[in-house]
Design a protein around this nucleic acid. Structure first.
Length: 754
DNA sequence: AACAACGGGCTTTTT
DNA sequence: GCCCGTTGTT
């Protein structure tokens, strides 16, 4: 047995070493799921499998990257670079670029992001002369996406009386028409949206037996992470690919399924049993992440779900502190308390900023938190929200790049045809679109051959259009000869975009210009990093198309408090977790509450949130929250009642909002014992917190410079200096083990050594 | 074509 | 409250 296998427990070991045949690993939170996946892949490679023959599908690109690095370390070779590993979207877009011709695409196809696809749907609705209040873009977009994820194409839709009836009732009879037109327009633009990447992959494997055969042979071993969050099309793809060898290993946790809105389907777990009757199941139930209090708390919550696979998550870890549940007046106070507690823990427990994460249900909640953190000078980073590449100015420049890689890209063209202004306004664009639709060609085709398409435009406009075409063509000619940065810089400057933004001296304008600079810097890094073969703009665009903010981490972001939605926190872990906004209609969300499935998913989401915590967990809710421009009263979340009270501690609220010099530390908890013990602290300096509630403050009177002391964590040390008074009394101590530290004495629990 | 003024809707969650 | 899109004005 090789050395690296010794680092696994028995169930992990079994899951890693069972290489052949279909298998499912049910892995509780913190049970070493990623470990199993990485070691399993490493073990496959070590056992002689060619990395080229392994397909590993992960939930995020970041996870794939980290796993690849870890595998490389274990197998001690660069073999891991040959793995096909990444998200469904990135792996299959790679496959689609190779096989594009088969499905009548070209390999330079554009990937439309949500904004592109929204814009396209909007213009289709407008062109069709439909009422935009009945045909709401967002709704249509979601419906199209959901149909695609369930492998219902426009023709399937038209053949489904059920679906037709739904839209008939909603008076959206033109939906099928929109759906069809949307698909056609994407195709004509040589573009795929996120869902198309999956849909077309399945289409490719389904319609072309030779392609299927090729990849079935190639992927002798298939691994799927977060299997509980795969959707129907993803399921179909995996099933196809695995059909020949049946060496498929899926890993997941039904209790952590939180993406049903994206088409994720627990049914896939049940289907697995039908498709591979002789499959093996492995359960990873020992939690290595959290204290036993946190594990027990999470277990007490999830038992309220009816639908789940039986398993018992347990831990050998120490008991730890109880979870604190905190009632607050409003969202601002909630933010303030979170910020204060983080600040205090940062100091008291010598924690790094990056050890903290604040999790919330909706992105909108980040605002109050941000304000509080900023006031306390706590360095933080928000994940989610508007991604860098989604910013208008960035998208505008990228549209030029997209045009020179794929000039058929309609959404890119619409963005830049009159940016910067060149006298080609809406009227001209409308004429172009009508002509293009009529002849079933791309807009670019029309612009490139104006005389052929008999447009009713005047000579001046025709001249401007041909100038525009010449400009784009001049970029296209250069695209294969120049590296990404040189070309990008040239486009930015010669198109006039660069100077347009440069001359805008408003606050927003300056910020936009900075973003453009940042984009160019990013491209520069890319050009320098990649080899000469791969440093073209085309490769850069492929690289960024499927990136999320999480993949885009900057160096200086590494030690910051993290703010994100619970969805974004999936798969992550932090020593200190704050879950905020535990209120009815917010968490559980209003949208999800009316059906059992929805509510159970919200509960799983809360389960995910709780189980992110390693050491300490804080839950809070507000009595009032600023919503839609006014304060709304809130009720505590039903989930709080479901938690077993043995593992929580209610923090008493002192509604001191109106008091002058009110110190929020007092709010977090003021237990009765605390009041007694803290008598010697003058009132105005009383700084007490819940996290500290049952700690007796050190008698600081006897401490003086030169004394030898002992600290519970840092060991023996010598006091170098004492400063501050009363509760703020601090000592600089030199510890033999860890060096010099400044400690606030009331927290430090120092013992005097003789 | 560009800008100001106004009104409506919005909050789930994301590749 | 804020963003977005629409309308009206020059």
């Amino acid at each position: 047995m090789t050395n690296y296998l010794k680092q696994l427990n028995q169930s992990q070991m079994q899951a890693v070493s069972n290489l052949q045949g279909p298998m499912m690993v049910i892995a509780g939170p913190g049970s070493g799921k990623t470990r199993v996946l990485t070691y399993r892949i490493a073990h496959l490679i070590k056992s002689g499998t060619d990395a080229f023959n392994i397909l590993a599908l992960t939930f995020t690109n970041k996870a794939a990257k980290e796993m690849r690095n870890r595998i490389e370390t274990i197998v001690e070779s660069h073999e891991a670079q040959n793995l096909w590993m990444g998200t469904f979207h990135s792996v299959f877009s790679k496959m689609l670029r190779i096989e594009a011709e088969k499905i009548n695409y070209t390999s330079n196809f554009t990937i439309y992001d949500t904004i592109d696809s929204k814009d396209l749907i909007k213009s289709i609705i407008k062109e069709m002369g439909l009422d935009k209040d009945i045909y709401k873009t967002r709704l249509i977009q979601n419906r199209i996406s959901s149909l695609k994820n369930n492998f219902i194409r426009p023709e399937d839709y038209e053949n489904s009386p059920e679906l037709l009836q739904t839209d008939k009732i909603a008076r959206r009879t033109a939906f099928g028409n929109i759906y069809q037109k949307y698909m056609q327009r994407c195709f004509k633009s040589c573009a795929m949206d996120f869902d198309d990447l999956l849909l077309n992959t399945y289409h490719l494997l389904n319609e072309f037996p030779d392609v299927l055969y090729k990849y079935q042979n190639k992927f002798q071993y298939i691994l799927v992470d977060e299997y509980q969050d795969t959707n129907h099309v993803q399921y179909l793809i995996i099933k196809k690919l695995a059909a020949m060898n049946e060496n498929i290993c899926v890993v997941g946790d039904d209790a952590q399924s939180i993406y049903s809105f994206r088409g994720a389907n627990i049914q896939n777990i049940l289907n697995f049993k039908v498709d591979y009757p002789d499959f093996k199941t492995f359960k990873l139930e020992q939690n290595y992440r959290s204290t036993s209090n946190i594990v027990s708390l999470a277990n007490s919550l999830i038992t309220h779900n009816k639908k789940q696979i039986a398993k018992k998550v347990w831990t050998k870890n120490q008991e730890g502190e109880k979870t604190i549940v905190c009632k607050t007046l409003n969202d601002n106070e909630e933010g303030r308390i979170v910020a204060n507690t983080i600040d205090e823990l940062h100091f008291k427990e010598n924690a790094n900023w990056k050890d903290f994460a604040v999790l919330y249900r909706t992105n909108a909640q980040s605002r109050a938190l941000e304000e509080s953190l900023r006031k306390k000078n706590i360095t933080y980073k928000i994940y989610g929200g508007l991604s860098f590449y989604a910013r208008k100015e960035v998208k505008d420049v990228l549209a030029y790049f997209r045009m020179c890689i794929n000039p058929k890209d309609e959404e890119a063209l619409k963005r830049i045809i009159n940016y910067p202004t060149r006298g080609l306004g809406v009227t001209t664009l409308q004429k172009l679109i009508i002509a293009a639709n009529k002849q079933d060609v791309s807009i670019w085709e029309v612009i490139s051959n104006l005389e052929k398409y008999e447009l009713k435009i005047n000579k001046g406009t025709a001249e401007k259009l041909s100038q525009f075409a010449t400009l784009i063509n001049s970029y296209i000619v250069q695209k294969d000869n120049l590296d990404a940065y040189t070309l990008a810089e040239q486009i930015a400057k010669t198109s006039g975009v660069f100077y347009g933004l440069y001359n805008d001296k408003t606050v927003e304008g300056v910020s936009r210009f900075e973003n453009l600079q940042e984009l160019l810097n990013g491209i520069k890094d890319f050009s320098e990093k990649e080899g000469e073969e791969n440093n073209t703009l085309e490769y850069f665009m492929q690289d960024i198309a499927l990136l999320t903010d999480a993949d885009n981490e900057k160096e200086d972001d590494h030690n910051k408090v993290i703010l994100m939605t619970i969805h974004a926190a999936k798969g992550l872990e932090f020593p200190y977790i704050f879950v905020v906004g535990l209120e009815e209609n917010l968490f559980p969300s209003m949208m999800a509450m009316d059906c059992r499935e929805g509510l159970e998913e919200e509960r799983r989401l809360f389960y995910v949130a709780i189980t992110r915590a390693e050491k300490r967990l804080f839950l809070s809710y507000a009595l009032s929250r600023f919503k839609w421009g006014q304060y709304t009263d809130c009720e505590p979340s039903r989930f709080l009642k479901e938690l077993n009270k043995t593992f929580t501690k209610q923090s008493e609220i002192a509604l001191t909002q109106k008091k002058k010099n009110h110190n929020p530390y007092q709010i977090f908890a003021k237990t009765k014992t605390q009041k007694k013990k803290s008598n010697f602290i003058p009132k105005n300096l009383k700084r007490v917190s819940a996290i500290n509630a049952d700690v007796t403050p050190t008698k600081t009177e006897h401490l003086q410079v030169g004394l030898k002391v002992k600290h519970s964590r840092f060991g023996s040390g010598k006091i170098l200096k004492i400063e501050g008074e009363y509760a703020n009394k601090k000592a600089i101590i030199f510890f033999e083990a860890v060096g010099q530290k400044m400690l606030l004495l009331k927290f430090a629990k120092l013992e005097i050594e003789k």
